[in-house]
Design a protein around this nucleic acid. Structure first.
Lengths: 225, 225
DNA sequence: TGCCAATATTACATTTTGATTACAATTTAG
DNA sequence: CTAAATTGTAATCAAAATGTAATATTGGCA
């Protein structure tokens, strides 16, 4: 899964700064355009987390938070220039999950975001998904997608592709693969691996990934560009 | 449900103060006795949330947090006298969920606790409801509402749907579901789950939710958009 | 080039998994 | 206490996933 954040903040310089910081951690973000319909924009964007400024044109952050909370439990972090405890208490009573005061340390914002994603979506920096080129392997539902099309994989195919994705541009030996897929089951025919590979190739071929999975005779399997 | 907290803090005056504050909000709390086996005491107490001081005799809070995280996802709030961002960042990277600096405002601590309980356990001060998209599950009268129509569910169906609603866009393994629904009854046939799922699907199908409940073969059940 | 081991392919057998159905047991409400 | 609702069990089914074996193909090397 890839995590999309939504930024409700009218200072466009700050928005740009935050987006840049998020991007360097692999998070994508959209930001609010029309401060008259923040709730509508959020409903359309379906973000996994919201950064909410307090002082906004038209209505303030408290108002929108309350409105959002009527229909959604999406995690919300407040951005505020007020550092009094009472402001933070109010924000959290309105349904915010965390609060950070401006100006803030970007690294601190990132760990707060990660903590919330971790709790709400079992986010962790390795598991969940892996990518190679424009391909993303989703370990939640065993699907591979190239930005446009999705291909459903089986458990073993996912395991195998995951192993390749975690060692891009490196030859992975057959032994490693066998261990990873079948661990202790000693009776597995060595040929079974060929078959599994073939099945994987045929499926991912539909979206053009097969050509990147090469077998190096006598060495193993290589995922390259 | 009533919530039990665990306080890891060697300043007994502060412990007493926190316990008093928590009590006035209806939370019970135990505190650490032997700072050599914090993990053991916590495992025994099974708290819903932990307050963790940084400076402790023998080992510090980071050490214990890391140790706890190997086996548990219980929410942890750090109590620290250091207010530098870098300390908070470190704590959260170790697996903490929030951080508060001493001396702190008791009301602020309470709202932080409530925010975490709300997120992790669907704690809410008034209504027993969970939502997903436009669907609202009422845990009090076991009814599912889509804004227009209502569907009556049974106890088990509600439990199951509630579990899915609390883990949207994640595959919930059959094991997790079994534990959640049948806890200790060890003799329950694995097939019973299939049957319960089928019954749930057929009921929620009337208002179009069935299509969002997908089974990922070999993994579990996934609620998605 | 032509051989040979490594790998691929194909077809089929086996196993796993989950859905479905009918029915029995149990719980709950009136 | 009884009837209805709920829940659990067992049997059956279909489909998907996986494994095996037989056969074909490939690529490196003598």
């Amino acid at each position: 899964m890839d995590y999309k954040l939504f930024i409700v903040e009218d200072n466009q310089e700050l928005v740009a700064l935050i987006k840049k910081g998020l991007a360097s951690w692999g998070f994508s973000a959209e930001s609010c355009q029309n401060f008259n319909q923040v709730d509508k924009e959020i409903a359309a964007a379906k973000p996994q987390l919201i950064l909410m400024d307090v002082n906004l044109p038209f209505f303030n952050g408290f108002y929108w938070t309350q409105k959002i909370r009527q229909t959604s439990q999406v995690p919300i972090i407040f951005l505020s220039s007020r550092s009094e405890d009472s402001d933070q208490i109010m924000a959290m009573n309105f349904g915010a999950d965390d609060y950070i005061t401006k100006p803030f340390n970007m690294d601190l914002l990132i760990v707060k975001i990660k903590a919330l994603l971790r709790r709400e979506y079992d986010f962790s920096e390795d598991s969940g998904q892996t990518s190679f080129l424009n391909y993303t392997l989703n370990l939640v539902d065993n699907q591979l997608w190239d930005g446009a099309n999705k291909v459903a994989l089986t458990k073993n195919e996912t395991k195998l592709l995951h192993l390749l994705f975690s060692h891009p541009r490196q030859t992975v030996s057959k032994e490693e693969i066998m261990t990873d897929l079948w661990e202790d089951e000693l009776f597995i025919d060595r040929n079974t691996l060929s078959v599994t590979l073939a099945r994987l190739r045929s499926k991912v071929g539909e979206i053009g990934l097969a050509g990147h999975i090469k077998t190096i005779k006598g060495k193993g399997v290589l995922l390259d560009d």
